[in-house]
Design a protein around this nucleic acid. Structure first.
Lengths: 131, 131
DNA sequence: GGACATTAGATGCGCACGCATGTAATGTCT
DNA sequence: AGACATTACATGCGTGCGCATCTAATGTCC
Protein backbone atom coordinates (compact mmCIF):
# COMPACT_ATOMS: atom_id res chain seq x y z
CA UNK A 1 0.00 0.00 0.00
CA UNK A 2 1.75 3.07 -1.28
CA UNK A 3 1.91 6.21 0.78
CA UNK A 4 0.04 8.26 -1.77
CA UNK A 5 -2.01 5.81 -3.77
CA UNK A 6 -3.37 8.54 -6.01
CA UNK A 7 -6.70 7.69 -4.51
CA UNK A 8 -9.11 10.41 -3.58
CA UNK A 9 -8.10 13.64 -1.95
CA UNK A 10 -9.55 12.66 1.39
CA UNK A 11 -7.36 9.60 1.60
CA UNK A 12 -4.27 11.63 0.76
CA UNK A 13 -5.17 14.09 3.48
CA UNK A 14 -5.67 11.28 5.96
CA UNK A 15 -2.25 9.86 5.19
CA UNK A 16 -0.65 13.27 5.34
CA UNK A 17 -2.20 13.85 8.75
CA UNK A 18 -1.17 10.43 10.00
CA UNK A 19 2.40 10.91 8.84
CA UNK A 20 2.62 14.43 10.20
CA UNK A 21 1.25 13.54 13.60
CA UNK A 22 3.48 10.51 13.86
CA UNK A 23 6.66 12.45 13.13
CA UNK A 24 5.56 15.53 14.99
CA UNK A 25 4.71 13.68 18.20
CA UNK A 26 7.90 11.62 18.03
CA UNK A 27 9.94 14.79 17.57
CA UNK A 28 8.19 16.56 20.41
CA UNK A 29 8.78 13.66 22.76
CA UNK A 30 12.39 13.07 21.84
CA UNK A 31 13.48 16.71 21.82
CA UNK A 32 11.55 17.47 24.96
CA UNK A 33 12.73 14.51 26.99
CA UNK A 34 16.37 14.49 25.93
CA UNK A 35 17.03 18.20 25.56
CA UNK A 36 14.16 20.09 27.13
CA UNK A 37 13.27 21.65 23.80
CA UNK A 38 9.90 21.92 22.09
CA UNK A 39 9.69 21.44 18.35
CA UNK A 40 9.11 25.15 17.72
CA UNK A 41 12.05 26.03 19.92
CA UNK A 42 14.31 23.63 18.11
CA UNK A 43 13.23 24.83 14.69
CA UNK A 44 13.82 28.43 15.71
CA UNK A 45 17.24 27.63 17.09
CA UNK A 46 17.98 25.62 13.96
CA UNK A 47 17.16 28.53 11.69
CA UNK A 48 19.36 30.81 13.76
CA UNK A 49 22.35 28.51 13.88
CA UNK A 50 22.17 27.79 10.16
CA UNK A 51 21.72 31.44 9.29
CA UNK A 52 24.62 32.85 7.24
CA UNK A 53 24.77 36.05 9.30
CA UNK A 54 24.56 34.11 12.53
CA UNK A 55 21.47 36.05 13.49
CA UNK A 56 18.00 36.77 12.21
CA UNK A 57 15.31 39.34 12.70
CA UNK A 58 12.10 38.07 14.22
CA UNK A 59 10.16 38.75 11.04
CA UNK A 60 12.76 36.79 9.07
CA UNK A 61 12.29 33.85 11.37
CA UNK A 62 8.56 34.28 10.96
CA UNK A 63 8.67 33.61 7.25
CA UNK A 64 10.65 30.43 7.81
CA UNK A 65 8.50 28.93 10.53
CA UNK A 66 4.92 27.78 10.64
CA UNK A 67 4.08 29.85 13.67
CA UNK A 68 1.91 32.88 14.18
CA UNK A 69 3.72 36.08 14.93
CA UNK A 70 2.64 35.99 18.54
CA UNK A 71 3.70 32.38 19.00
CA UNK A 72 7.09 33.17 17.53
CA UNK A 73 7.48 36.17 19.81
CA UNK A 74 6.85 33.98 22.82
CA UNK A 75 9.08 31.20 21.54
CA UNK A 76 11.97 33.65 21.25
CA UNK A 77 11.15 34.95 24.71
CA UNK A 78 11.32 31.41 26.07
CA UNK A 79 14.66 30.79 24.36
CA UNK A 80 16.01 34.05 25.71
CA UNK A 81 14.83 33.28 29.22
CA UNK A 82 16.76 30.04 29.08
CA UNK A 83 19.88 31.78 27.84
CA UNK A 84 19.88 30.11 24.43
CA UNK A 85 19.49 33.32 22.44
CA UNK A 86 19.84 37.06 22.97
CA UNK A 87 17.50 39.74 21.68
CA UNK A 88 18.81 43.07 20.50
CA UNK A 89 17.18 46.17 19.10
CA UNK A 90 18.24 47.04 15.57
CA UNK A 91 19.93 50.43 15.19
CA UNK A 92 18.67 51.14 11.69
CA UNK A 93 15.09 50.19 12.36
CA UNK A 94 14.33 50.47 16.01
CA UNK A 95 11.17 48.41 15.63
CA UNK A 96 13.11 45.35 14.53
CA UNK A 97 14.61 42.86 16.97
CA UNK A 98 17.52 40.68 15.96
CA UNK A 99 17.93 37.30 17.59
CA UNK A 100 21.35 35.72 18.09
CA UNK A 101 22.08 32.26 19.45
CA UNK A 102 24.39 32.20 22.46
CA UNK A 103 27.22 29.73 22.88
CA UNK A 104 24.96 27.69 25.09
CA UNK A 105 22.31 27.84 22.40
CA UNK A 106 24.71 26.58 19.76
CA UNK A 107 25.89 23.85 22.08
CA UNK A 108 22.36 22.67 22.81
CA UNK A 109 21.47 22.78 19.15
CA UNK A 110 24.51 20.71 18.25
CA UNK A 111 23.42 18.27 20.91
CA UNK A 112 19.81 18.10 19.77
CA UNK A 113 20.36 18.04 16.01
CA UNK A 114 21.34 14.34 15.94
CA UNK A 115 18.18 13.51 17.87
CA UNK A 116 16.17 15.46 15.31
CA UNK A 117 17.81 13.64 12.43
CA UNK A 118 17.43 10.28 14.13
CA UNK A 119 13.70 10.72 14.64
CA UNK A 120 13.26 11.88 11.06
CA UNK A 121 15.22 8.91 9.79
CA UNK A 122 13.25 6.48 11.88
CA UNK A 123 9.81 7.87 11.11
CA UNK A 124 10.30 9.22 7.62
CA UNK A 125 13.10 7.07 6.31
CA UNK A 126 11.52 3.86 5.08
CA UNK A 127 8.38 5.56 3.81
CA UNK A 128 9.15 5.28 0.10
CA UNK A 129 11.20 8.41 -0.58
CA UNK A 130 9.15 8.70 -3.76
CA UNK A 131 8.07 6.26 -6.45
CA UNK B 1 10.22 21.53 -8.15
CA UNK B 2 8.52 18.30 -7.19
CA UNK B 3 6.75 17.97 -3.89
CA UNK B 4 9.02 15.23 -2.68
CA UNK B 5 12.25 15.68 -4.59
CA UNK B 6 13.88 12.65 -2.96
CA UNK B 7 16.23 15.17 -1.46
CA UNK B 8 17.34 14.82 2.12
CA UNK B 9 15.02 13.83 4.91
CA UNK B 10 15.03 17.28 6.41
CA UNK B 11 13.72 18.82 3.22
CA UNK B 12 10.96 16.25 2.96
CA UNK B 13 9.97 17.01 6.52
CA UNK B 14 9.94 20.72 5.81
CA UNK B 15 7.63 20.23 2.87
CA UNK B 16 5.41 17.89 4.79
CA UNK B 17 5.10 20.47 7.57
CA UNK B 18 4.43 23.27 5.12
CA UNK B 19 1.74 21.30 3.36
CA UNK B 20 0.15 20.12 6.57
CA UNK B 21 0.03 23.56 8.13
CA UNK B 22 -1.33 25.10 4.98
CA UNK B 23 -4.19 22.64 4.67
CA UNK B 24 -4.77 22.41 8.39
CA UNK B 25 -5.05 26.15 8.90
CA UNK B 26 -7.26 26.57 5.86
CA UNK B 27 -9.55 23.82 7.13
CA UNK B 28 -9.67 25.27 10.60
CA UNK B 29 -10.60 28.70 9.30
CA UNK B 30 -13.17 27.54 6.79
CA UNK B 31 -14.93 25.05 9.05
CA UNK B 32 -14.83 27.39 11.99
CA UNK B 33 -16.09 30.48 10.20
CA UNK B 34 -18.76 28.86 8.07
CA UNK B 35 -20.00 26.15 10.42
CA UNK B 36 -18.62 26.84 13.86
CA UNK B 37 -16.73 23.56 13.84
CA UNK B 38 -13.12 22.86 14.71
CA UNK B 39 -11.17 20.37 12.65
CA UNK B 40 -11.21 17.76 15.41
CA UNK B 41 -14.93 18.21 15.84
CA UNK B 42 -15.57 17.80 12.14
CA UNK B 43 -13.37 14.73 11.90
CA UNK B 44 -15.14 13.17 14.86
CA UNK B 45 -18.53 13.92 13.40
CA UNK B 46 -17.35 12.61 10.06
CA UNK B 47 -16.28 9.29 11.54
CA UNK B 48 -19.61 8.96 13.28
CA UNK B 49 -21.74 9.78 10.28
CA UNK B 50 -19.78 7.44 8.03
CA UNK B 51 -19.83 4.64 10.58
CA UNK B 52 -21.73 1.57 9.37
CA UNK B 53 -23.49 1.12 12.73
CA UNK B 54 -24.30 4.80 12.90
CA UNK B 55 -22.50 5.07 16.21
CA UNK B 56 -19.08 4.44 17.67
CA UNK B 57 -17.56 3.87 21.05
CA UNK B 58 -15.16 6.52 22.22
CA UNK B 59 -12.22 4.16 22.07
CA UNK B 60 -13.16 3.26 18.51
CA UNK B 61 -13.10 6.92 17.56
CA UNK B 62 -9.79 7.19 19.35
CA UNK B 63 -8.10 4.75 17.00
CA UNK B 64 -9.35 6.67 13.98
CA UNK B 65 -8.34 10.15 15.09
CA UNK B 66 -5.02 11.74 15.86
CA UNK B 67 -6.12 12.95 19.25
CA UNK B 68 -5.13 12.00 22.75
CA UNK B 69 -7.76 10.19 24.74
CA UNK B 70 -8.40 13.25 26.86
CA UNK B 71 -8.70 15.55 23.86
CA UNK B 72 -11.17 13.17 22.29
CA UNK B 73 -13.19 12.99 25.49
CA UNK B 74 -13.49 16.75 25.54
CA UNK B 75 -14.23 16.96 21.84
CA UNK B 76 -17.15 14.58 22.29
CA UNK B 77 -18.26 16.59 25.30
CA UNK B 78 -18.23 19.75 23.19
CA UNK B 79 -20.22 18.08 20.43
CA UNK B 80 -22.73 16.82 22.96
CA UNK B 81 -23.08 20.21 24.57
CA UNK B 82 -23.97 21.64 21.18
CA UNK B 83 -26.51 18.93 20.56
CA UNK B 84 -24.62 17.36 17.66
CA UNK B 85 -24.13 13.96 19.30
CA UNK B 86 -25.51 12.01 22.24
CA UNK B 87 -23.50 9.92 24.67
CA UNK B 88 -24.89 6.68 26.05
CA UNK B 89 -23.57 4.10 28.46
CA UNK B 90 -23.12 0.66 26.96
CA UNK B 91 -25.16 -2.10 28.59
CA UNK B 92 -22.67 -4.91 28.01
CA UNK B 93 -19.66 -2.99 29.18
CA UNK B 94 -20.68 -0.22 31.49
CA UNK B 95 -17.32 1.48 31.16
CA UNK B 96 -17.80 2.09 27.46
CA UNK B 97 -19.64 5.10 26.06
CA UNK B 98 -21.21 5.02 22.64
CA UNK B 99 -21.53 8.22 20.68
CA UNK B 100 -24.36 8.78 18.21
CA UNK B 101 -24.84 11.75 15.92
CA UNK B 102 -28.15 13.56 16.30
CA UNK B 103 -30.25 14.72 13.37
CA UNK B 104 -28.81 18.17 13.87
CA UNK B 105 -25.35 16.64 13.89
CA UNK B 106 -25.96 14.86 10.60
CA UNK B 107 -27.41 18.01 9.12
CA UNK B 108 -24.42 20.12 10.13
CA UNK B 109 -22.05 17.47 8.85
CA UNK B 110 -23.81 17.37 5.50
CA UNK B 111 -23.50 21.11 5.40
CA UNK B 112 -19.83 21.18 6.33
CA UNK B 113 -18.63 18.26 4.23
CA UNK B 114 -18.59 20.25 0.97
CA UNK B 115 -16.52 22.94 2.66
CA UNK B 116 -14.11 20.26 3.79
CA UNK B 117 -13.83 18.83 0.30
CA UNK B 118 -13.49 22.26 -1.26
CA UNK B 119 -10.59 23.22 0.98
CA UNK B 120 -8.87 19.90 0.33
CA UNK B 121 -9.33 20.33 -3.39
CA UNK B 122 -8.00 23.83 -3.36
CA UNK B 123 -5.00 23.17 -1.16
CA UNK B 124 -4.18 19.60 -2.03
CA UNK B 125 -5.52 19.28 -5.52
CA UNK B 126 -2.87 20.61 -7.86
CA UNK B 127 0.00 19.29 -5.77
CA UNK B 128 1.03 16.46 -8.08
CA UNK B 129 -1.25 13.60 -7.00
CA UNK B 130 1.86 11.53 -7.29
CA UNK B 131 5.18 11.57 -9.11
C1' DG C 1 -14.53 -15.33 45.96
C1' DG C 2 -10.74 -11.93 46.90
C1' DA C 3 -6.45 -9.50 45.29
C1' DC C 4 -4.44 -7.37 41.51
C1' DA C 5 -3.98 -5.80 36.75
C1' DT C 6 -6.15 -3.80 32.88
C1' DT C 7 -9.38 -1.06 30.24
C1' DA C 8 -12.75 2.93 29.37
C1' DG C 9 -13.47 7.28 30.00
C1' DA C 10 -13.37 11.90 32.71
C1' DT C 11 -10.83 15.61 34.72
C1' DG C 12 -7.06 18.79 37.02
C1' DC C 13 -3.30 21.08 35.35
C1' DG C 14 0.02 23.55 32.72
C1' DC C 15 1.31 24.95 28.21
C1' DA C 16 1.64 26.56 23.43
C1' DC C 17 -1.15 28.27 20.16
C1' DG C 18 -3.97 31.89 17.33
C1' DC C 19 -6.69 36.11 17.38
C1' DA C 20 -7.26 40.63 18.53
C1' DT C 21 -5.19 44.49 20.22
C1' DG C 22 -1.65 47.65 22.02
C1' DT C 23 2.70 50.32 21.45
C1' DA C 24 6.26 52.27 19.08
C1' DA C 25 8.84 53.26 14.93
C1' DT C 26 8.89 53.97 10.02
C1' DG C 27 6.97 55.13 5.45
C1' DT C 28 3.86 57.99 2.54
C1' DC C 29 1.32 61.71 0.89
C1' DT C 30 0.12 66.38 0.62
C1' DA D 1 5.89 69.38 8.95
C1' DG D 2 1.45 67.01 10.03
C1' DA D 3 -1.98 63.30 9.27
C1' DC D 4 -2.57 58.67 8.24
C1' DA D 5 -1.18 54.03 6.93
C1' DT D 6 1.96 50.39 7.64
C1' DT D 7 5.39 47.52 9.80
C1' DA D 8 7.62 45.11 13.83
C1' DC D 9 6.97 43.19 17.86
C1' DA D 10 4.67 42.37 22.54
C1' DT D 11 0.76 41.01 25.26
C1' DG D 12 -4.19 40.00 27.15
C1' DC D 13 -7.27 36.53 26.41
C1' DG D 14 -9.61 32.39 25.37
C1' DT D 15 -9.11 27.69 23.67
C1' DG D 16 -7.62 23.04 22.58
C1' DC D 17 -4.07 19.99 23.50
C1' DG D 18 -1.19 16.25 26.04
C1' DC D 19 0.23 14.31 30.44
C1' DA D 20 -0.79 12.57 34.65
C1' DT D 21 -4.20 11.05 37.52
C1' DC D 22 -8.77 9.57 39.14
C1' DT D 23 -12.99 6.62 39.16
C1' DA D 24 -15.44 2.78 37.86
C1' DA D 25 -16.01 -1.52 35.49
C1' DT D 26 -14.09 -5.68 33.63
C1' DG D 27 -10.67 -9.43 33.20
C1' DT D 28 -7.25 -12.69 35.38
C1' DC D 29 -5.24 -15.72 38.59
C1' DC D 30 -4.79 -18.12 42.90
Amino acid sequence: MPLTPDGDLCERWRQLMACYHDVSCALERALSQRHGLGVSEFETLDLLVKSPRGKQFVHELHSGLHLSQSALSRTVARLEKRGLVTRAMCANDRRAVSVTPTEEGRRLHAEAAPTHTAVLTEHLGELQPQA
